[in-house]
Simulated assay, not measured.
Amino acid sequence: MTLNTLIENKLDPYLVEIDDGSHYAKDFIQDLFKENHFSKQDIEKNLLTIEQVSNSCLTTGFCLWCELAFSTYLQHASTNYLNTELQNKLLNGEILGATGLSNPMKSFNDLEAFNLNHYYIDGTLYVNGKLPAVSNIGDDHYFGAISKAQDGEELVMFIVRANQEGIKLTEMSNFLGVNGSATYTIQFDDVIIPEKHIITKDAKSFATQIRPQFVTLQIPIALGSIRSSLDLIHKFSTAQNGINQYLDYDVDAYEAQYQQLRTEFYELVHAHKDELSAYFADIIRIKKEAGYLLLEVNQASMVNGGARAYSHKAPQARKLKEGFFFAALTPTLRHLGKLEAELKQQA
């Protein structure tokens, strides 16, 4: 089934329900993988799929990013169980995966303390603590996480399944932009991590290795939503005898900035997909610029839409929340600014 057909039949009819939190597009997400709309090797294909889905629904595009972030962990793991067996199940739609790395990514930049801690008994790893928000999660989903040793500096990255003994899920709802993304607070109470689920005991180096791809996969989420809001602006440009011509928003400038960002992004990925680490500064800048443009365009679309846009079911109102959510997606806009400043100092 084509991507357009899946979006039209299994995503678009549920946009209001996703926004109000009564629907999580699990079947749609699994069907995308079952129908081979994602690839283990082709990052450009994956980016374009996320972008097209985000054009319809940023929330679901974000859930796809969660899946591919998890896939990135498996891709760089050293064991056959993780990088082949579990990876193939994910890409075939047999299992779903998520990222629990929001807190560690902030911790590596001294923005937060590590929320998970671990200790060993007879060589077995036990984990405690709480992750405040993990998205694209259900009882049978897998996710990645990082814990810090209770009595030292060791940082372990591992894979865990949400229905393991000692794990408790508490759903988050009515958090702006998060509805419909299956987001939960996750409590760990002496959770045993099997040896085969441990990715590395040098999690900081591993996170540095995957971080460029981690952020790269987020950019098409914004690009898809920007395009959708620009299309909404054009759709209502002649409303009420052309009254929108008197707004001060420069829609032509928005279009030009969007086209420039999108072209630059895909050209960078096409030319350097195997060496993204060397272009991390550009990736950060593009995500930052896309995030701010998304906020501006979504606000312009809201005002441009007039009274009809102020219904909670209106696409403009939904996309206004999408922009705020993207701004808070780790690395957040303010976190990106800090990373940018640090990289300039290192140059």
Rank of each mutant, 00 (worst) to 15 (best):
A328T: 13
E165D: 14
V160G: 07
G144H: 06
L96D: 07
T79F: 11
C57N: 15
L111Q: 11
S205T: 13
L223N: 02
F158W: 06
A328H: 15
L48W: 04
D12R: 15
K288R: 07
I167F: 10
F188G: 07
A203F: 06
T84F: 11
N55A: 10
G93F: 09
C57V: 06
F114N: 07
L68N: 01
N117V: 10
Q87Y: 13
F188S: 07
L116A: 01
A222D: 01
Q218M: 02
T183F: 13
L232F: 12
K45Q: 15
Q345W: 02
N9C: 00
L295Y: 09
L74R: 06
Q218K: 01
L223G: 04
F108I: 11
G61W: 04
F325P: 02
V251S: 08
L230A: 03
F324N: 08
I198Q: 02
L329Y: 15
E296I: 00
K344W: 08
L32D: 09
C66P: 03
I137D: 00
T185C: 09
L230I: 08
F33D: 05
K287V: 12
T200V: 02
E296W: 00
I199P: 04
T183L: 08
E340A: 05
P331C: 06
E322K: 11
A182W: 02
T72S: 14
L101I: 04
F265T: 02
V127W: 08
N304Q: 13
D151Y: 14
S39G: 10
T208Q: 10
L58S: 08
G177F: 10
P331W: 01
K201F: 10
Y254L: 00
I198N: 01
G97E: 08
K313F: 12
S102Y: 06
K40W: 03
N163R: 06
T183S: 15
G177D: 09
L230G: 01
R211E: 12
F280M: 07
E35F: 13
L232I: 15
P13H: 09
L68Y: 00
Q87T: 07
D19L: 08
V251F: 12
